[in-house]
Lab assay of single mutants.
Amino acid sequence: EFSMMFKHFDKDKSGRLNHQEFKSCLRSLGYDLPMVEEGEPDPEFEAILDTVDPNRDGHVSLQEYMAFMISRE
């Protein structure tokens, strides 16, 4: 189920989600993330990124995504 969600939000089929795609994916899974303006701080989402994209390369791989989802179950 999680990998299907990942593929759905991987719009460019790159095998990874940019942070915006990842945020959309989390919202569709029921995460209550506040709407913030582009460039505004988003501490809740930043905290999630610290876990799922610790190297802050700007992308979430399928492996990082799956590890995050399994840790939340």
Score class of each variant (00 low, 15 high):
E1K: 15
F9Y: 06
K11T: 08
D12E: 09
K13S: 15
K13W: 05
K13T: 06
K13G: 11
G15D: 08
G15W: 02
R16G: 04
L17E: 00
N18D: 15
N18W: 04
N18K: 08
H19M: 04
F22K: 03
K23N: 04
K23A: 05
K23W: 03
S24C: 15
C25A: 10
L26N: 00
L26K: 00
R27M: 13
R27K: 12
S28P: 01
S28Q: 12
L29C: 12
G30K: 06
G30T: 01
G30I: 02
D32V: 10
L33S: 05
P34F: 07
V36P: 12
V36Q: 12
V36R: 12
V36A: 11
E37N: 12
E37T: 12
G39A: 08
G39T: 07
G39S: 07
E40K: 12
E40D: 13
P41K: 15
P41G: 11
D42E: 12
D42M: 03
P43E: 10
E44Y: 09
E44P: 09
E44G: 10
E44S: 12
E44R: 12
F45R: 00
F45G: 01
F45I: 02
F45P: 01
F45V: 02
E46C: 05
E46P: 01
E46H: 07
E46Y: 03
E46T: 07
E46L: 03
E46N: 09
A47V: 10
A47G: 11
L49S: 00
T51W: 10
T51L: 13
V52L: 06
D53Y: 00
D53G: 02
P54E: 05
P54G: 05
N55D: 11
N55W: 06
N55H: 09
N55E: 11
R56S: 05
D57E: 14
G58A: 01
H59Q: 10
V60F: 00
V60D: 00
S61A: 10
S61E: 09
L62D: 04
L62W: 12
L62C: 07
Q63H: 12
Q63K: 14
Q63C: 08
Q63P: 11
Q63S: 14
E64S: 15
E64R: 13
E64V: 08
M66W: 04
M66S: 08
M66R: 07
A67M: 10
M69F: 12
M69G: 04
R72C: 09
R72A: 15
E73P: 15
